[in-house]
Each structure stands twice: as structure tokens, then as C-alpha cells.
Simulated scan of single mutants.
Amino acid sequence: MAEMEMQKKVMMGLFICFFVSGVRAWTGEVRGRVVCDVCGDSSIGPEDHVLEGAEVAVLCITKSGEVLNYQAFTDSKGVYAVAETMPESNRWDACLARPISSFHKHCSRHGDSKSGIKFTYNLPSGHSHTLRSFLYQPSMVPMYCM
């Protein structure tokens, strides 16, 4: 929780810097979760649990063509987030988010048939784009799943 508060303060500070300098600022955020799909059924159920410390990469292209690469790790609730404040004229245009790794030995295989999520970022400043959960599966499915 303290990390999110710190992130909000940093974002607010960046927003104030842009506002004071006369440049119209834009702030965007991409967030999602990483889950262990225990039964490997590609859906989230009561047997599944979030993965803390999973790594996710988010690659965004700005309206001016600049490529920005972000790295995030999930918190204790399995949530990751990346955020950026920049001039409105240079805001994100499109992004690709993909899971990189799970450090949990019991749940480390990519469970999604698609390795990443591509999307157009067309939200106004201050809004979050929330993605579907990335799934990892155990190497051996428990007997109670069969």
C-alpha cells in the first residue's frame, strides 16, 4: 500500500511540474493481475490464487513514435501497474503487455494461449486501462482438478 501511495505522489508531482511549465500534461496507467490457474482450465476459480512477485513487461508506442518499455512486478494481491505522466502531444498510442516470469516453482508455466495483449490506449488523462489476468499453471495438475 505504501508503494502505491508513493507512486501516486510521484505522479502528482510530475503533473504539477507539467502544469506549472505551461505544457498540458497527460497521465496514463496500465494495470492487471497475475494468477496461478491451479487446475489449468484457463478460467479463474476458487482453487486459483494470485502470484506475488510475477514480472510483467509493458511496451508502449507514443503518438510521436517513441517506444517506451516498462517493467512491473505484482504485489501481494497479484496486481501490477505502470504509469507515466508526459505531455499530451506525446501520450501513449498503443501498448503491448506480456507476462515475463513467475518465480513460484509450483506455478511457473505460461497458461495463456496468447503470450501478450495488444491494445490501443485511447483513455483520457488520469484513467487506467485494466487488462485481463495473465495465467500461469503448475507443471502437474492436482488430482482434485481431474
Rank of each mutant, 00 (worst) to 15 (best):
V56H: 02
Y121D: 09
N90M: 15
L51A: 05
L59A: 01
Y80K: 02
G22P: 02
L131Y: 04
P124A: 11
H127I: 10
G65T: 05
F134K: 08
R132D: 14
W26S: 08
K105R: 12
S128L: 07
T120Y: 08
V58S: 01
V82M: 01
E47C: 09
V79K: 07
L51P: 01
S115C: 14
D75V: 06
R33C: 01
Y144M: 10
P124W: 07
P99S: 14
P124E: 13
R91I: 01
T120V: 14
L51E: 06
E52L: 05
S102Q: 07
R31D: 10
K77C: 08
P138Q: 04
R109P: 01
S21R: 13
V20L: 15
F134G: 05
F73T: 08
I16D: 12
F119V: 06
D93H: 15
G53L: 06
C60Q: 08
V50C: 05
H110N: 13
T120Q: 12
G78M: 02
C17P: 00
R33M: 05
R91D: 04
Y70P: 02
F19V: 03
H106G: 03
C17N: 14
I44C: 09
G126V: 11
H104Y: 06
P87L: 06
W26N: 06
K114F: 09
G28L: 05
K118A: 13
V50E: 10
G22A: 11
V56F: 03
M140W: 08
G53K: 10
C17H: 09
P46E: 15
S43I: 06
D93S: 15
G53R: 07
D112T: 04
H49A: 08
A81G: 07
A57I: 03
N122W: 06
S43H: 09
S128Q: 08
Q71F: 10
R91W: 02
G45C: 05
E84V: 08
D48S: 08
R109G: 03
E47W: 04
S101V: 10
V38D: 00
N122V: 00
D48T: 09
D93T: 09
K63Q: 15
A54M: 04
T120E: 13
P138V: 00
D75E: 07
Y136S: 00
D37G: 01
E88F: 14
D93W: 15
K114T: 09
Q137N: 11
I61Y: 10
A72T: 00
E88R: 12
G22R: 12
T27S: 14
F134C: 07
G45S: 14
R98E: 13
R24W: 12
I117M: 11
G126Q: 11
E88N: 05
V35F: 00
M140Q: 13
G32H: 05
V82L: 05
Y80E: 01
P138K: 03
L123N: 08
P99Y: 03
M140A: 12
V30P: 01
V35P: 00
G32K: 02
M143W: 07
E55C: 11
D48C: 11
Y70W: 09
L51C: 06
M86W: 02
G65L: 05
